[in-house]
Amino acid sequence: MSSNTPRAGEVYFEFQQVGQQIRVAAIDGATGIEVVVFGPQQAPQRDLEQIALRKLQRRLQREKSDVDPFRKQDGRGFGTF
């Protein structure tokens, strides 16, 4: 295994200024799943990281459970009549 191979639980953060806001991307190193949050420019970086991390954890849990919230029990979507 090379040192560039992501380990389970490794998360990468990317910060980008967009106008008066900061865009924070949290990327799971093992799966490549990415979530994005926006926050005020003056917010502490650590706070924005924590928000993005919680969102990523929720997304990973949803992916793990493989439950589609837009499906009914019988497998039909909301738009099925």
Rank of each mutant, 00 (worst) to 15 (best):
Q50E: 14
Y12G: 07
E49S: 07
I33F: 13
A43R: 10
D47I: 02
T80V: 05
E34S: 15
A30P: 00
Q41N: 14
A25E: 10
R62E: 15
Y12C: 04
R71H: 02
K64M: 06
P44H: 08
A43K: 06
D66A: 15
L60A: 06
A52Y: 05
A30L: 11
A52T: 02
Y12F: 14
G9Q: 03
Y12K: 14
R76W: 01
I27P: 04
Q50S: 09
V11F: 11
Q17T: 11
R71Y: 03
L48W: 01
P69D: 09
Q20W: 04
R62Y: 02
I22A: 10
P69A: 08
Q50W: 05
G79P: 00
R76V: 00
V67R: 15
A43N: 06
S2L: 04
K72E: 04
Q73C: 00
L56K: 08
R59C: 12
E14D: 13
F15C: 09
I27Q: 08
Q42S: 12
A30F: 11
P40F: 10
A52L: 01
G32F: 13
F15Y: 14
A43Y: 05
I33K: 15
D68G: 01
V11N: 07
R54I: 00
F70W: 11
F15S: 03
F70I: 00
E14K: 14
G75K: 10
T80F: 15
G19A: 09
P44V: 05
V35W: 04
Q50G: 01
V11I: 15
A25H: 08
T5W: 00
A52M: 05
F38A: 04
R62H: 12
Q45S: 14
K72T: 02
Q45F: 02
L48R: 05
S3L: 07
Q21S: 11
Q57C: 02
F81M: 11
T80P: 00
L48M: 10
D28R: 09
L53T: 02
R23M: 06
V18Q: 15
